[in-house]
Write a protein that binds this DNA or RNA. Structure first.
Lengths: 256, 256
DNA sequence: GGGAACTTTAATGTATACATAAAGGAAGGA
DNA sequence: TCCTTCCTTTATGTATACATTAAAGTTCCC
């Protein structure tokens, strides 16, 4: 139990790995539209491999929630409603909030505190950049993702970590999923400033061992991701900027 | 998206279904001890089927978190520490808390409220039974599980529902996992009384649309499951009463 | 004696063939 | 014309064979 969590699909350059990655990409890009049935034989042709790794990949993607097993056999590509997106983000925030509370309750080392401080400083540089061009936003996304990963790691809970990974298999649930879409809004800078303030406050709460505060802040932080979500989901142009945007069918709002 | 979630292993009487169920049982019973490597060929002999469904089953059980893929190939049976158990229960409480909040915020129908009321009445009967014998406890477990399922359903969130299912794939994380073990403690009746009081309060909060209250209560409710967890985990006799008890290695406490 | 390199064996990944089940179409009857 | 039943086709589940890789064992050199 000492090596990082490894999934089957992550081992080397195997056919199964290829299948998982390519199918993911096809789902995310809309090449496989939400709701469509996935025919093994068609995928075999498309991916240029035998049925076995394709089947394994489909089984794994089903567990990721990107495809769904059909009762009579086979799989179909899942679609997600605006509510699903909202709930997934709320769910991630809830789990990351739990992680932040654990980190605060369990305490972190001085070194970890310094590492977080460094991260915050780098995020500060990005957030205060003169213009928020694509390069700056990419840097923000990278650092933001790293910040989130570190918080989760500092919770020192395999169970929680694993659970968060599962939520994040849905790309629109990731911490930076809407950053690019938001960067087009006129309050883009404000959103980054607020987010960064929350980052800073979370770290302060963790170091200060204020579990409840850390959790509440981390949860609220995930909600920043949802600013302008409504208009982002309904704008085709903005939706192009959202990872996994093609999985979302906004006319399925509220439908269960 | 109108049928209940179906996993590959749940389709009919297939070999894969058999393999998943039998492997689960072997893991839960300790027939496959935690940490041991799972050899495909040995399992093929043991389960009396070809490698294909065995491999599929292992892939699925890996996603359930019961087995772990090894980087160089194959799988091993996972072991869980006392911290894992604690964290899994806390995690379930957190997610059920979120579900309860959703239910409260989104509102439930009059019929659903009555259904919950009926459930509470039946739970009352069980909790006030003259003696807490095995039959009574089984009834409690059944009704308790049903109560939890209904709360989750009333959240009307596929994403959250799915996530909770994933947590509950670890049997010791289920709402009634420690009920039988607790029934041997001298405060068994008190635990049931407190739990039922919380059930009632959660329903009240949901109907009253008090999201924060519902969430907090539901989270605290999961903690009742942890009463006497320490001694339950360390007592071999009590651990026999815990679903998935064999997965737990209490001498791995805190080890990451 | 210990470590490195090589060889052999065993296990896992993949491809393919066979078996089974589901879906679709056609024909017949009401 | 519509519904039911039957047959055919197609897709998926499973078994088996082949290919590749990892692990174990042996030999040689320092």
């Amino acid at each position: 139990m000492d090596s990082p969590e490894i999934t089957r699909g992550e081992r080397g350059g195997s056919q199964t790995t290829r299948a998982v990655m390519q199918l993911r990409e096809m789902l995310f890009s809309g090449e496989i539209p939400p709701g469509t049935r996935l025919s093994e034989l068609a995928l075999v042709e498309r991916l240029g491999m035998s049925r076995t790794p394709v089947r394994t990949a489909l089984t794994m993607l089903a567990e990721e929630g990107l495809v769904q097993a059909i009762g009579t056999g086979g799989f179909s590509a899942r679609s997600f409603s605006e509510r699903d997106v909202n709930d997934a983000i709320e769910l991630r925030g809830t789990l990351e909030g739990l992680a932040a509370r654990f980190a605060a309750e369990r305490g972190i080392s001085t070194i970890a505190g310094q590492m977080l401080g460094d991260l915050l400083a780098r995020l500060d540089e990005v957030v205060t950049a003169p213009t928020l061009d694509a390069d700056v936003m990419e840097q923000y996304i990278e650092l933001n993702a790293r910040f989130h990963r570190e918080i989760i790691r500092l919770a020192e809970s395999r169970v929680v970590e694993r659970q968060i990974e599962r939520v994040m298999a849905l790309p629109f649930a990731s911490p930076s999923a809407f950053v690019m879409a938001q960067s087009r809004c006129e309050d883009a800078r404000n959103v980054l400033v607020i987010s960064q303030d929350q980052h800073r406050a979370v770290v302060e709460a963790i170091i200060g061992r204020e579990g409840t505060r850390a959790e509440a802040l981390m949860r609220e932080h995930s909600r920043v991701a949802r600013r302008n979500l409504g208009q982002a989901v309904r704008s085709r142009e903005a939706l192009e900027q959202v990872p996994g945007g093609k999985l979302i069918q906004f006319d399925r709002y509220g439908e269960e």
